[in-house]
Amino acid sequence: MSAELKHKQATAPAVQVRGLNVVYATNQGDLPAVRQVDLDIEARKITGIIGESGSGKSTLVMAMMNAVGKPGQIVSGSVEVLGVGDMLSIDRERQRKARGKELGLVFQAAQNSLNPLRRIGHQVLDLGRSHDVKDLRDLLRKAKDLLTRLGMDADRVLASYQHELSGGMRQRVGIMFALILDAKIVILDEATTALDMLSQASVLEIVRELHKERGLTTILVTHDMGVVADMADRVVVMYGGEIVEEGPSEFVLSHPAHPYTQGLVRAIPRISGDIDRAVPLQGAPADLKTYLEPGCPFYQRCPVAMPKCQESRPTSLAVSQDRKVACFKVTDHD
């Protein structure tokens, strides 16, 4: 524990998000998708961001790359990326270069990130050209090394189209693309969601190994508590566009503080122990209307809600050295 603490003081956070607000412009006005988020992503650690659909987790990481798609719009805040600067204020060309070189992104099943009409090898070259890589031969060699490292037949994969690859293979190709320009910060956005258990396990194993070998900062965005619990050093729980709890994953899992995290952990079916300890979470996930409520976004589903929770939003407060929770029940002691 103390070693971890020392380590933490020695390194600056790889990504520092401050006061981030993202809204979606709809015909019902601007709806906040990410609200007032402060977050430090520790360097060389695996951070898991967990949330349901509509929790704002994907929007948050897209905002980190300043790549929020329309109709989303970043309203305010800053995203300091180590060695790059504030992604939200540097010039566009520098931003574009940073995506790929410093920040690598792996999409869900890598389906949308691969061009269906070009061979993988061609796409490696396209990527190199758009990032002004001088030595394209060297880039291809790197791609081959990476693919071999990922346990694939490199020559065959480079000569293939995306439809000739299975889901698991495509996902590995996605990882190759994220790492080929030596990005040190890798974001996996629901990267294993569409895979079955076996492919998921082997892709996660590779991510774990590469994370260690290359000294990466890995951000794992997922809705699966199991994936986060297995992989992450730190977990960030999002609900209704806000971070409701964050801390070291082991402690968050064994002693969840926020009622939502408690509910999530309790709702995981397990392969050991008493099955009937698993209890479903009540209610429906936060939707666009929830965002407009003045109170806590979890209020309607919360088993321990107080009148106060309907009126005002709890802010995220530190409850111990490296743990933050946004819940009146936890942070109020008077």
């Binding site: 998921q200 396990a201 082997s202 619990a229 297995d230 064994s254 995981i268 397990r270 392969i271």
Partner: peptide, 14 residues
């Protein structure tokens, strides 16, 4: 056994 191994381990609980 491979399928069972592939189930993520809940660190802190398992």
């Amino acid at each position: 056994q491979a399928l069972l191994s592939a189930v993520p381990v809940l660190k802190g609980l398992e």
